[in-house]
Write a protein that binds this DNA or RNA. Structure first.
Lengths: 169, 169
DNA sequence: CTGAAGTTTCAGAAAATACTGAAAATAACG
DNA sequence: CGTTATTTTCAGTATTTTCTGAAACTTCAG
């Protein structure tokens, strides 16, 4: 019966990994997070390597990345020299962490770029330039709104988020 | 002064393309959309190829993909044999289209998979299996909520969305 | 029909991305 | 210290993804 558990775990890991790659997240990174979400206890690098059949280097770099996103935490156990890793398991928290990270990495930079483009177009005459500038302004307005929403989300508690969603639905 | 316009256009295209690849959208696909957003008039495949310096095959397949997402439309002009392409320019509509597409491609399948995993774990005894099943249920609940939100978004008009966001902010 | 204009397909090439494995570095223990 | 366990790095390799370019196909005007 334990075999069944492992089988389901592997299925979950595989699918979560595929989902990750659709979201611009490294497949292995998503798989490690999936594996750790499936474990009540913190796991070592070796256990991760064995479960996913990946090399130490690969495991290591993706664990580091997950830590930098705040998706997993390093746990030290007394009497043990190895490091153990524990996943953030609350879907709401995971969502907030991802929103925060993507806001920083993707949304903020694009706002700067759009504003540069708009500034550079000042003084360029003609209908085409005017239309393009209008388009850039519309996009900027939208992205800035998205930015504010993500900011709010990444600072919010689960129950606040939940209330918003209930209003929407 | 037209040179300046082209320069800004290229910058915008480049950056929007980079943003796209972070979102799991093919870079060229995002660039073509960016180019068409910068043009008041519909453009031909050849104009797209020239502006982005890409091959016909590449242009063609990404144009097809953009059409299937609903992000651009084919326009036929009388007296012209060539096909012209026009971008959806409203950021809100673009957002809704992307939400709709990703819901279909990513969110819906994962719900099925999670439910399978939960069903397969029925009957597996032990704390580890129980904990894992609980985790899967939490994830499912969350993803299903996300699914409903995306459904709602993809059906909504701009002003409805706007109202929600004002409430949140 | 015929042929020019335009579109579609796809095998192979190129580029981008991710992974391995082993060596170097670090930390803990006696 | 010296030894051993563990983590970190990274050059080279493998894999995945994307792109090219040319041939096949379609459409349309004469």
């Amino acid at each position: 019966m334990v075999a069944k558990l492992e089988q389901v775990r592997d299925e979950f890991i595989t699918e979560w990994g595929a989902l990750g790659s659709a979201w611009g997240v490294n497949r292995t990174m998503a798989q490690i997070h999936a594996y750790l979400m499936s474990c009540p206890e913190a796991q070592t690098t070796d256990e991760i390597m064995e479960s996913l059949e990946i090399s130490r280097g690969n495991a290591h770099s993706n664990i580091k990345e997950l830590i930098s996103w705040g998706m997993i935490k390093k746990v030290l156990k007394k009497g043990e020299r190895k490091e153990f890793f524990l996943a953030e398991k609350d879907p709401w928290k995971i969502f907030c962490l991802v929103a925060k990270e993507r806001k920083k990495r993707e949304v903020e930079p694009i706002i700067g770029i759009l504003n540069n483009c708009i500034a550079d177009l000042k003084g360029v005459k003609g209908k085409e330039a005017d239309d393009f500038q209008k388009q850039l302004k519309d996009l900027t307005e939208f992205v800035e709104m998205g930015d504010r929403v993500m900011e709010k989300i990444s600072r919010s508690e689960k129950n606040i988020l939940f209330k918003w969603l209930l209003k929407i639905l």
